[in-house]
């Protein structure tokens, strides 16, 4: 039992160390005097998509264009530009493609609204089925006669 615990702890430690190495290898260190700017830099670069490497953020990508974009984001932050301005600047050049969080526009209504639409639709179907199942209905005259006949036969046998 104790041996197993030690083994698990050691393995977890090793994995954590490896993760640290991998993360440090991709991005250069960037110093901001203002911790607020550093936080915004981290958030922004993690929400922007590298145009060259498709499924990486510019924060994680090692491609030269991602490095250029990080450089621009940092410079614009230092120059006091807003997050929105920085995003607009990059979208103008590289297209909406670079936004990992697409903006709400007629083109993305379905994307943002789709999940709610589906949940709503599911709810309607569920409500309809439940209502149909629970609502008891009075027997009509023909059905009552048939029921009486069946019960009658049962009694006699």
């Amino acid at each position: 039992m104790a041996r197993r615990l030690i083994r698990t702890v050691l393995l977890a430690g090793l994995l954590t160390a490896l993760l640290g190495v991998a993360a440090a290898a991709t991005i250069e260190v960037r110093d901001f005097d203002d911790p607020q700017l550093a936080r915004r830099y981290t958030t922004l670069t993690h929400q922007l998509r590298c145009p060259k490497c498709q499924n990486e953020t510019i924060a994680a990508s090692a491609s030269p264009i991602a490095a250029d974009m990080r450089e621009r984001v940092a410079a614009m932050l230092e120059a006091g530009r807003s997050d929105r301005e920085i995003q607009d600047f990059l979208v103008q050049r590289f297209g909406e493609y670079v936004l990992y969080r697409p903006r709400l526009s007629p083109r993305t209504w379905l994307l943002w609204g789709g999940p709610f639409l589906l949940v709503g639709l599911g709810g309607v179907i569920l409500a309809w089925r439940v209502r149909r199942r629970t609502a008891p209905r009075a027997l009509d005259a023909a059905e009552r006669r048939r029921l009486d006949a069946l019960l009658d036969r049962e009694d006699r046998s």
Binding site: P51, S63, I65, D68
Partner: peptide
């Protein structure tokens, strides 16, 4: 420095 390239949105 790739400045015009950047303004053109060139990524490769």
């Amino acid at each position: 420095d790739g400045t015009l390239g950047f303004d053109l949105g060139v990524y490769g």
